[in-house]
C-alpha cells in the first residue's frame, strides 16, 4: 500500500504522511491491551490467585489445623464428604434462590415495565426509588426486616387480626421470612436490567401488535416479553447467583433449620476452622451455579439476543 502511494505521488514530502498512519496503527493496536491491563492485573491478583489458593485448600488433608498447618494430600474426599453431609443445605440454597428469583421476577417485571413505558417524567424519580435502599447497608436493612417480621411486629399482628393462620404463630425464623428478606434485598438487581431492556422496547411495536389483532395478553407474550428476554436473563442471573450464596438473610431472619450453604461455609471458615471443608463447599457451590447458569442460558436461547 505505502509503496504504491510513493509511486503514485512521487514526492519526498508524501513519505511522512503515508508513514504516520502505519506507526499510529501499530500504536493503536496496543491501546486496548494497555486499557485492559489494570483490570487484568486486578483480576489476577484478587480473583485468579485466590481461586487457585482456594482450590488448593479444598484438597488439603482435613486433619490439619491453622496452628499445625495443612498438608497437600490431594484429598478429593473433601468434596464427597462436603456434598454428602450438606446436601440439604445445598438443596435449600438452590431452592430459596430459585424461589427468590421467581418472586423478584414477578414483582420486578411489572415494576420495570411501568417505569420504562408509563413512567413519563417520573421515570428518573422512580428509578431513584428502586436504588434508594442501597444508601443503607445490606446488614441494617436485613436487621430492619427482623423488626418488621418479629412476633409483635406490624406484619404478624395484622395477619393475626385477619385470622390468617401462621405456622407456630410466627413469621420470623421461618423459610418465608428468609425468602422475603432475599426478595427485598435482590429486587433492584432484577429491576435495573429489566428496566434497561424494556426502555429500549419500541412502543410502536406494541401498537403494531394491537393493530394486527393481538389482544393485550398475547401482545405481551408475543412481543414485549420476547423482546425483553435479555433483561430477564440478566436480571435472573444477577439475582440467582448472589442469592444462592447469601447467608446474612438466613442468619438474621431464619434459624439453623433455614441455614443455607453460605452459612455452613461461613461457620467452617470463621468458627470451626475447617478450611479444606469450607473450600470444598465453596468450589462445589461455584460449580453447581455455573452448570445451572449454563443450562439456563442455553434453554433461554438468548445467546444471539445477548
Amino acid at each position: 500500500m505505502s509503496a504504491l502511494g510513493h509511486l503514485g505521488t512521487g514526492s519526498v514530502a508524501s513519505a511522512t504522511p503515508s508513514d504516520q498512519p502505519v506507526a499510529g496503527g501499530r500504536r493503536r493496536r496496543w491501546v486496548p491491551y494497555v486499557l485492559l491491563l489494570p483490570g487484568i492485573l486486578w483480576l489476577l491478583l484478587f480473583f485468579a490467585i485466590p481461586c487457585l489458593e482456594l482450590l488448593a485448600t479444598s484438597l488439603y488433608d482435613p486433619s490439619g489445623s491453622l496452628e499445625t498447618g495443612y498438608a497437600m494430600t490431594w484429598h478429593f474426599a473433601n468434596y464427597s464428604d462436603a456434598v454428602r453431609e450438606y446436601a440439604g443445605h445445598f438443596g435449600r440454597s438452590i431452592g430459596y434462590a430459585a424461589l427468590t428469583t421467581l418472586i423478584t421476577l414477578l414483582i420486578g417485571y411489572p415494576l420495570a415495565y411501568a417505569i420504562a413505558l408509563k413512567g413519563g417524567r417520573w421515570k428518573n424519580l422512580m428509578l431513584v426509588g428502586v436504588i434508594a435502599p442501597f444508601f443503607t447497608s445490606f446488614l441494617i436493612r436485613t436487621l430492619a426486616w427482623k423488626v418488621i417480621l418479629s412476633d409483635d411486629g406490624p406484619v404478624v399482628s395484622t395477619l393475626n387480626a385477619l385470622h390468617v393462620p401462621l405456622p407456630d404463630g410466627r413469621l420470623l425464623a421461618t423459610g418465608p421470612a428468609v425468602i422475603a428478606g432475599l426478595v427485598y434485598n435482590f429486587l433492584p438487581f432484577m429491576v435495573l436490567p429489566l428496566y434497561a431492556s424494556l426502555e429500549k422496547l419500541d412502543p410502536r411495536l406494541l401498537e403494531a401488535a394491537g393493530d394486527l389483532y393481538a389482544r393485550p395478553v398475547s401482545r405481551f407474550f408475543r412481543v414485549a416479553l420476547p423482546l425483553s428476554m435479555p433483561g430477564v436473563v440478566a436480571g435472573t442471573l444477577l439475582t440467582f447467583i448472589p442469592a444462592a450464596g447469601d447467608y446474612i438473610n438466613a442468619q438474621l431472619l431464619g434459624t439453623t433449620r433455614q441455614y443455607m450453604i453460605g452459612n455452613v461455609i461461613e461457620s467452617k471458615f470463621l468458627k470451626v476452622g475447617d478450611y479444606p471443608g469450607a473450600a470444598a463447599l465453596s468450589f462445589a457451590l461455584m460449580a453447581a451455579i455455573l452448570v445451572l447458569v449454563l443450562v439456563y442460558v442455553r434453554r433461554a436461547g438468548t445467546e444471539e439476543v445477548l
Binding site: 410502536r204 401498537e207 403494531a208 401488535a209 394491537g210 393493530d211 394486527l212 389483532y213 393481538a214 439476543v305
Partner: peptide
Amino acid sequence: LRPYKRPVNTVFQSYALFPH
C-alpha cells in the same frame, strides 16, 4: 372499538416489524 377488534390494518411509518 379497540384496535385489535377493527377490520383495519396499518403500514407504519417506521414499519414496526417485529425484530425477533
